[in-house]
Design a protein around this nucleic acid. Sequence first.
DNA 1: CCACTTTGGATAGTTAGACTATCCAACATT
DNA 2: AATGTTGGATAGTCTAACTATCCAAAGTGG
Lengths: 213, 213
Amino acid sequence: MITVWMAELSERSGLPVATIKYYLREGLLPPGAAVGATRARYGEQHLRRLRLIRALVDVAQLRLDVVRAVLGAVETADSRHTAIGAAHRELTAADGPEPTDGSLATVDALLARRSWAMAPGNRLRAALAQSLDAIAGLGFPVGVDLLDAYAQAMTDVAEVELDQLDNVDRDSAVEHAIIGVLLLEPVLLNIRRIAEQNASMARFSARSARGAR
Amino acid sequence: MITVWMAELSERSGLPVATIKYYLREGLLPPGAAVGATRARYGEQHLRRLRLIRALVDVAQLRLDVVRAVLGAVETADSRHTAIGAAHRELTAADGPEPTDGSLATVDALLARRSWAMAPGNRLRAALAQSLDAIAGLGFPVGVDLLDAYAQAMTDVAEVELDQLDNVDRDSAVEHAIIGVLLLEPVLLNIRRIAEQNASMARFSARSARGAR
DNA sequence: CCACTTTGGATAGTTAGACTATCCAACATT
DNA sequence: AATGTTGGATAGTCTAACTATCCAAAGTGG
């Protein structure tokens, strides 16, 4: 196993030594193997962890305390299935206003239509209800057909995503679970924006053509 | 038209007077109608704007400078189509590392497969490539079949989303465009997480059953 | 019409998050 | 033995988003 000093870890990760020390202090990076009181060696996994942290911060826009929570929770998971669940659990913050009964009912109806089961304490139910409330509070409630379209689309997507996860060796399953849950979000959202622009442009041209006729 | 003083605007929006003054200074909220040097009246649109700002900050996690840019850009748009485009443009920040040629080629191939056109300067192309690079940099490149699944799913979704936009009166089209682009993102992501958990659970149980047989 | 309250506008202070820099004593290298 | 790097502790910086204070001009109640 290759091991390196702090200086090289800094160089290879592209992060200043001071920042790596900060991550060590914050418990985001496990300490290196101590060799005497003022020296420690770091391995390949430290480098991989640093890169993962940076990706979560830069791409997924997570705060460091959330990164620590996700990393810790996923690490203690004993399977891909529980790893995904743990990642979701840590990412679904229990903050903001309580969801209304109406939005909770909407969510439950959606779950029922798709025969989706959900453990009693799962915060995703409340989180979805909260995001519906936020929109309804602005006067534009989300229609049932849009919710169904989202649910159908995400059902299709989830199958393909899990296919990918099956082809991964056990060691990197944890990292892969985090990547699958978090880092694919911007990919999906960017594609949504492109699709929206194109669909919008198609309708716009169609309307102009009709108007000009 | 109903108009109110600062005190009532604060009360009805739930925001402290100091915060509303801050938003006025920052140009997020248009000034009220001045009545003398130390008095101004605010209308219903100020209240709606404040609620929209809070939703963009709390739900869509936008920074205030981005909120200002989005609001400004969308307001000067002359149709729903251009409003959506303007919102996307302001949201697609031109930061981070340059995308690699490989990821750009992957994006272009995807666009070609779906016959999606894109204006030359559109930053969405680079943004999508960057998010692919971030994942590839961790050693788990995104497969073409996953990209296609995302593209198909988002194509379906975009049609339903635009159907909603058609049923909206001209006045609130701007707000609706912002909501459609930004506030529906958390809804979609929450549904994705629920769908993933269920798909993951289904496979997990299937595997356990096979193992126990 | 006069004491009292509210407001707009300006300015200064606060808090949280994420670093960044400095020190120092203990090693290790030359 | 001189020089240089490291771990560990501590303190300082920077930005974003408020939050608080002040003050003079305007209303308002009596």
